[in-house]
């Protein structure tokens, strides 16, 4: 079983290379942001690996269901290789040469099965734009050897007809939600249900992984924090008792005071001169 996966991983190499090239096309980030955050998600069942980046071992015995990173990678091309744990890079089971990492992006690279059960690598660009105050972002990625699915929250489909290797996303009220995955258009539960805690100001990325045929369907989750926004304002008073600054009557009073002083002074002066 495991060996057959390895063979399939090797076959998937060419696909992976193509997929990497595709990332650059849709993440033309600002020129000044040269560094990208890159996470790696392992969604191939029963296949722990070592991960090499540019010939250097970066992840040791990386297990299915784990998420590594984020790594800060300078914009550029990278050679990535996966080996069986402990094996030399020469006997890599999957190699991707000159994978293009664009600048200023947040990327998740998923090693997973395609719809037909072939191992492959798909890079996803993560939406790390700010969410409104009180909201959380939910992103679901179909990276399992399974047909099209619907994602339900509290029994109601929220994302429909999601296929491998695509994603669906939305900003929802932060909080807890009971979610499950069903075969598209049916009530046949494929994964779950599970309690999702969607924390405000974060993106929760849920990957459906494994194989329906192999009965290894599962989920891997990745969370990106720091996407929160501040409230629009803090309105906290409409009484006016604590108002500072001065009202119109203050100017009237001050004006009257000055006039009285002047008037009184002039009168005194004229009175004195008058008596002389």
């Amino acid at each position: 079983m495991q060996l057959s996966y390895f063979r399939r991983v090797a076959a998937g190499g060419a696909v992976a290379a193509l997929a990497f090239a595709g990332v650059g096309a849709f993440t033309a980030g600002p020129a000044y942001a040269a560094t990208s955050k890159v996470s790696v998600v392992h969604g191939i069942p029963d296949t722990p690996v070592d991960v090499y980046v540019n010939g250097k071992k970066t992840l040791d015995n990386f297990k299915p269901g784990d998420v590594a990173g984020p790594l800060n990678l300078e914009e550029g091309d990278y050679d990535i290789a996966l080996t069986k744990p402990g094996e030399p890079i020469g006997s890599a089971i999957l190699k991707v040469d000159n994978a293009a990492v664009p600048g200023g992006a947040n990327i998740s690279i998923a090693a997973h099965l395609d719809a037909a059960g072939q191992p492959k690598i798909t890079p996803f660009v993560n939406d790390v734009s700010k969410v409104d105050a009180g909201k959380a972002r939910l992103i679901v990625r179909h990276t399992a050897a399974a047909p099209a699915v619907d994602v339900r929250a509290g029994g109601t489909p929220v994302f429909e007809d999601l296929t491998n290797p695509n994603e669906a996303k939305g900003d929802v009220d932060a909080g807890n939600v009971k979610a499950d995955v069903v075969l598209a258009g049916t009530d046949t539960v494929a994964i779950g249900p599970a309690d999702l805690n969607l924390k405000e100001g974060t993106a929760t990325i849920v990957y459906a992984i494994g194989s329906a045929e192999g009965k290894t369907l599962d989920v891997v989750a990745q969370t990106i924090t720091g996407l929160h926004s501040a409230p629009g304002g803090v309105p906290s008073g409409d009484g006016g008792q604590a108002g500072t600054g001065v009202d119109t009557w203050w100017y009237v009073l001050t004006g009257a005071g000055v006039l009285l002083l002047l008037g009184g002074g002039v009168r005194m002066a004229t009175a004195r001169t008058g008596r002389k």
Partner: peptide, 17 residues
């Protein structure tokens, strides 16, 4: 006396202000 009163009132008004 009137002038003095005016002066006093003026001072009072400005003090309050």
């Amino acid at each position: 006396r009137g002038a003095l009163a005016a002066l006093a009132a003026g001072v009072a008004a400005l003090t309050v202000a």
